[in-house]
Simulated assay, not measured.
Amino acid sequence: MDTPDSTSPLLSVRGICKRYGDRVALQDASFDLWPGEVLAVVGESGSGKSTLLNAVAARSAPDAGSVQFRGRDGALQDVFAMTEAQQRLLARTDWGFVHQNAADGLRMDVSAGANVGERLMGLGERHYGRLRSTAADWLQRVEIDPARIDDAPRTFSGGMRQRLQIARNLVTQPRLVFMDEPTSGLDVSVQARLLDMLRQLTRQMQLAAIIVTHDLAVARLLAHRMVVMQRGRVVESGLTDQVLDDPQHPYTQLLVSSVLQP
């Protein structure tokens, strides 16, 4: 997979630290993300990968470190220097967040169309016909029958809910999406379909993404680069194929060998 070419990072993360009492959840985590690039954050349960994702996405404040995001005007913005209102606007426009459990990222009792249209309404769109037409178009793009536009997500299967959550996030044409174990808990065939769709959408939209996963096959399929976490630290990073085919850190070697063993 070719790494997207750009002169400046879209996101610059430096020295992120987070403690919960005596437990160090994150220690000096740093990385850059480039426009159109998909970065996988991998590691076993408890390695700090979801804590890192939530800190970078400004869903929980780190104890130290900085996150800078390049706005559409080309200027780097310090995310933690923003007001709450500015962070909320960023989360509704240039950013998206796909939860592991789709129910956490959807309004389960309103229609599929309303779930997709709600983010557009947050940007000021009020024309019912345009909202409905855009929602129907996005349902089709994520392989949901537009005839189900008025159905509530609680009537959908797990895979359909996850695809609807993705449509809800992408309808505002964000430049960066955070994904927390997006395929976890889904049947293998449903996972494969979802991954294929994600790969197509990130390419078509030149969308940057940070994907947290414990599944190295997901990382290989979707990600240009990856970072490997152990006990809250980034222990290895690099191009996905290089890290997986020639791991340097003993922990990464252990992760890769455990997948390869029958």
Rank of each mutant, 00 (worst) to 15 (best):
D2Q: 13
T3G: 06
P4Q: 08
P4Y: 03
P9T: 02
P9A: 11
S12F: 00
K18V: 07
Y20R: 14
G21K: 10
G21D: 02
G21E: 11
R23V: 12
L26E: 07
D28Q: 14
A29K: 03
F31K: 12
V38E: 01
A40D: 01
V41S: 08
V42E: 01
E44C: 08
S47C: 00
K49A: 00
K49Q: 06
S50L: 03
L52Q: 03
L52W: 00
A55C: 15
A61C: 02
A61W: 03
Q68N: 09
Q68K: 11
Q68D: 05
F69E: 08
V79D: 06
L90P: 06
A91H: 15
A91C: 07
T93G: 03
W95L: 14
G96D: 08
G96T: 12
F97T: 11
N101H: 14
L106P: 06
M108H: 10
D109K: 13
G113V: 05
A114P: 00
E118P: 10
R119E: 00
R119V: 14
L120M: 15
G122A: 15
E125S: 12
Y128S: 11
W138F: 13
W138E: 07
R141I: 04
P146T: 13
A147D: 15
I149D: 03
D150L: 09
D151S: 14
A152T: 11
T155R: 15
F156D: 07
F156T: 03
S157L: 12
Q162W: 06
Q165K: 04
R168H: 04
Q173W: 07
Q173L: 13
R175P: 04
L176T: 10
L176M: 09
V177P: 02
F178M: 09
F178A: 10
E181Q: 10
T183Y: 11
V188S: 10
S189Q: 09
Q191S: 10
L194G: 02
D196I: 05
M197H: 06
Q200K: 15
R203V: 12
R203H: 14
Q206T: 13
A208P: 05
A209G: 01
I210D: 01
V212Y: 00
T213F: 12
L216K: 04
L221C: 11
G232D: 00
V234F: 02
V234G: 09
V235H: 09
G238K: 04
L239T: 05
D241L: 10
D241Y: 03
V243P: 05
V243R: 03
D245I: 02
D246E: 09
P247R: 04
P247Q: 04
H249V: 04
P250D: 01
P250G: 03
Q253G: 04
V259M: 14
L260W: 03
